[in-house]
Simulated scan of single mutants.
Amino acid sequence: MGHTPTHTTPGNGVELSPWLPSQVPVSLLSPQDRTANEANRTYREPSSETLLTAYRRMVLGRRFDEQATALARQGRLAVHPSSLGQEACQVGAALALRDTDWLFPTYRDCVALISRGIDPVEALTLLRGDAHCGYDPLHHRTAPQCTPLATHAAHATGLAHAERLKGTDTVALALVGDGATSEGDFHEALNLAGVLRAPVVFLVQNNRYAISVPLSAQCAAPGLAYKGIGYGVRSEQVDGNDAAAVLAVLSTAVEEARAGGGPWLVEAHTYRLGPHTSADDPSRYRPAEEAEHWRRRDPITRLESALRERGVLTAADADAAAAEAEAYAADLRARLAADPELNPETLFDHVFAEPPPHLTEQRAALRAESEGR
Rank of each mutant, 00 (worst) to 15 (best):
P222S: 15
A72Y: 05
E289T: 13
I300G: 00
T142R: 00
L336D: 09
G232I: 03
T9W: 15
C89I: 02
D130K: 07
Q205V: 15
D298E: 01
L97D: 05
L165A: 10
S305G: 09
T69Q: 08
P148F: 14
E256R: 05
A112D: 04
D339C: 14
A320I: 11
V121R: 00
R197N: 10
E371W: 13
S27N: 14
L173Y: 07
F104I: 03
G262R: 03
R234V: 02
P222T: 11
T301H: 07
A154V: 12
L196T: 12
A172T: 05
Y55V: 02
P25H: 06
E326S: 08
T53N: 15
L336C: 07
H80W: 06
L149Y: 10
R295E: 12
T8R: 09
R73F: 13
K227P: 01
L224I: 13
G223I: 02
A245Y: 04
P282C: 07
Q237I: 08
I300C: 01
H161G: 04
A217N: 13
S370T: 15
P25E: 08
G167Q: 06
T125D: 05
A329C: 03
A330K: 10
S47A: 15
E87Q: 08
D331L: 10
L273R: 00
S182T: 15
V351H: 14
A143G: 08
E15G: 11
R208F: 10
R62F: 06
F186Q: 05
D130A: 13
P148W: 14
P148T: 15
V91C: 07
N207S: 07
L215W: 12
A325V: 04
P282R: 03
V176P: 02
R308W: 12
L159W: 01
R297A: 06
L203G: 09
T157N: 11
V24Q: 15
S83E: 01
